[in-house]
Design a protein around this nucleic acid. Structure first.
Length: 288
DNA sequence: ACTCAGGTATTAC
DNA sequence: GTAATACCTGAG
């Protein structure tokens, strides 16, 4: 495959660290020159910021401009979104100043489902390692600049894995969950195409919750970070619980904070942009 | 040795 | 319905 290049103006809503370290993705790695290289779909892409330009380079199935415009959500007006959210209160304003370059990637639904099942009660280095090993074993090799990259396996490819194979790759107790969910999706008992068509947020969420290994937090991550692109989803993990308690609830014991209360406040304050608000707050409190 | 990490499933009141 | 408990694994 031929290397392609695409350039855009950086603007005020595109920062590499904000995008790749805000917790939405697992397959982007920093290079020595501070650019990031990642693999999604059948594409290997390197993203670098040089001055006021963002430079996308790599090997693509189709046209790199179309591929990156879609994946990096380039047609969405994040300036407008940030303006709207900043008006809500000073917390939002501060967190958005901190993570101004965040963009929510359009990640493949199937890959996002499996990735976040693996994320349960796990840490990021391990999650990344597991996903790399799954891809190396069941995905397809792509070579870019002499280095090998592996696509995330398709449903069919991953269905070749038995539970004990997954255990060997270090999934731990998540092996059965990945195995079962793979079969549920392979058999179209849950049809990912139809999920994209479904308008009703709660119906989509309920369907996701039927998958093994998918509870409320993982379901909301899938809704927010995949091509489902539901910005009203509000994943509540330890960090979000912490920051929401600190800023809005002020309970002495944050572990005792009720999830319902958090959801209620999130919906009242942030409405259908709750997920994005969550992302700025999460990134701000986790990094700062 | 022991705790912790982007939670979920299971079991018990 | 809500509250406790176990759960692979490996890094600190």
């Amino acid at each position: 495959m031929q290397e392609q290049t695409y350039e855009i103006e950086k603007g005020n809503s595109f920062e590499l660290k904000d995008i790749f370290d805000c917790g939405q993705c697992f397959r982007w790695n920093k290079e020595l020159d501070n650019s990031y290289t990642g693999i999604f779909g059948n594409n290997v892409i390197n993203v670098a910021i040089k001055g006021e330009k963002v430079i996308f380079k790599g090997i693509c199935e189709g046209n790199i401009e179309e591929v990156c415009t879609d994946y990096f959500d380039l047609n969405r007006d994040y300036e407008k979104i940030k303006q709207d959210l900043s008006k809500i209160d000073d917390n939002m304003k501060t967190s958005i100043e901190y993570g101004k370059g965040i963009r929510i990637l359009n990640q493949d639904l199937w890959e996002t489902i499996i990735s976040f099942i693996i994320s349960a009660n796990n840490n990021i280095p391990r999650i990344k390692g597991i996903i790399e090993r799954i891809s190396a074993k069941y995905g397809k090799e792509l070579v870019y600049k002499g280095k090998s990259y592996y696509t995330f396996p398709t449903v069919e490819e991953l269905s070749k894995a038995e539970v004990q194979d997954l255990r060997k790759l270090g999934l731990g107790f998540r092996d059965v969950r990945v195995y079962e969910t793979t079969r549920t999706i392979l058999s179209r008992q849950v049809d990912l195409e139809k999920l994209h068509q479904e308008k009703d947020f709660n119906k989509v969420r309920e369907t996701l919750l039927t998958l093994s290994g998918v509870g409320p937090k993982v379901a909301d991550c899938i809704l927010l970070f995949s091509t489902l692109k539901r910005f009203e989803a509000f994943p509540i993990d330890v960090w979000v619980r912490r920051v929401m308690n600190e800023l809005y609830i002020k309970n002495v014991d944050e572990t005792k904070v009720n999830k319902r209360d958090i959801e209620k406040i999130a919906y009242e304050k942030f409405g259908n942009l709750a997920g994005l608000a969550q992302q700025y707050l999460f990134y701000w409190k986790r990094e700062a």
